[in-house]
């Protein structure tokens, strides 16, 4: 899977350069997230602005990615596209994550 990690200030920003996080890639996604968050950065921001579709396996993998970071660290989300946003809201997963509209607000809030 094409995931890119970038350190912006105190934030580890991980961008998913894929159109789908679905059953076909859920395990690879979670493994890639484990590798890219292994440096221990406390605050991780997952940029989903290029992801057009997440199914329940993908949703589970995103939750799993947060859980495997341990309870002292944070995984926020940014850039949910319409269908992805709907799935998060229907499953109440929008109450579990801090979800930002844009990178600017997400980074601004982390800095402030």
């Amino acid at each position: 899977m094409d995931l890119v990690s970038e350190q912006i200030g105190a934030l580890n920003v991980i961008t998913v350069n894929e159109a789908r996080i679905d059953a076909a890639v859920a395990i690879q996604f979670k493994d890639a997230m484990r590798r890219l968050t292994a440096n221990g950065t406390t605050h991780v921001l997952l940029n989903l602005s290029q992801v057009l579709f997440v199914d329940s396996s993908g949703l589970g993998a995103i939750v799993g990615a947060m859980k495997q970071m341990g309870s002292e660290r944070r995984l926020d989300l940014v850039g949910l596209t319409a269908d992805v946003d709907n799935v998060f809201r229907m499953t109440r997963m929008d109450t579990i994550f801090d979800i930002h509209d844009t990178m600017e607000t997400a980074i601004g809030r982390a800095a402030g």
């Binding site: 329940s56 799993g64 229907m90 499953t91 579990i96």
Partner: peptide
């Protein structure tokens, strides 16, 4: 049924959403 999301982080569900979404929609 929607899996419980008002639980500790370690216990958050990583599955069980599929039939909920089908029933809901």
């Amino acid at each position: 049924k929607l899996p419980k999301t008002t639980v500790k982080r370690d216990s958050l569900p990583e599955g069980g959403f599929g039939w909920f979404l089908i029933h809901t929609l």
